[in-house]
Design a protein around this nucleic acid. Structure first.
Lengths: 123, 123
DNA sequence: TCCATATATCATGAATTATTGATATACTGA
DNA sequence: TCAGTATATCAATAATTCATGATATATGGA
């Protein structure tokens, strides 16, 4: 997986099923959800869900882990943080020292992991 | 102008020129920017810029004001706040009382205007 | 090794979106 | 009222995206 730009991520979120998937994963937190579970929950066919999950994966907003026969998907908070930081860059009147901690908070970035933050979107 | 859903807003941000416009307006803050100014700055033809601004307007992420012959565009913080709140709903493990103030902060929502917040995206 | 389950990939057609040249509208000042 | 500037709309083509049926791959258990 290799994300290079923000339009790809927003494009991923622009499709209703994918937005639903993303929000379910945000709510699911560390538990994540299985691919099949998402398909059942949202009443989406298997190959359609697979294609949509693939697009979300490429966007860097979610990640996955194979658990035996099944694959579990999670919201990727680093990716989310990077995207929102890019989107709202200088949002507080060009005072990043004021704005950045707030972006950390909205994306639930723990202070002790701040050095791992995704900066791919930042210019 | 009447925005009804989040996919429209993310779709608006999924196009590179529109994302650039949005970010310029976020940075510009209360000064906003003229349509022609945006076109020059991003090297985009007049009618293309007009079409893209129209799409951003429909998304509720920006607003405009005619000033004589020119039209000035601004980031719409209420719209932005509503979208991000919807996107990250329950992001902190289903504890909105912890999460919501952070969303207010990232979108620079002043406390005294909280009652005006856009809730169109919230379920 | 064979079967069943879970997920991914492929090819296709339908629908949507983006850009452009041309033209229309809105406003200002002379 | 006319000319000029700023912006919007229209029509058309090109490009992209979507969901789907069919099929392939990966894993686990008997």
């Amino acid at each position: 997986m290799d994300i290079t730009n923000a339009p790809v991520a927003f494009s991923a979120l622009s499709q209703p099923t994918r937005l639903d998937v993303f929000r379910l994963l945000v709510k699911a937190g560390n538990d994540g959800m299985l691919s099949g579970e998402l398909g059942q929950r949202l009443n989406v066919r298997q190959n359609t869900m697979s294609a949509n999950l693939s697009i979300l994966l490429q966007s860097g907003l979610i990640r996955n882990e194979r658990m035996g026969r099944t694959i579990r998907y999670f919201a990727d908070y680093d990716g989310i943080h990077g995207l929102l930081a890019f989107l709202m860059e200088d949002c507080c009147g060009g005072k990043p020292e004021f704005c950045e901690p707030l972006i950390d908070q909205i994306t639930c970035t723990p202070k002790e992991h701040k050095e791992d933050n995704d900066t791919r979107y930042l210019s």
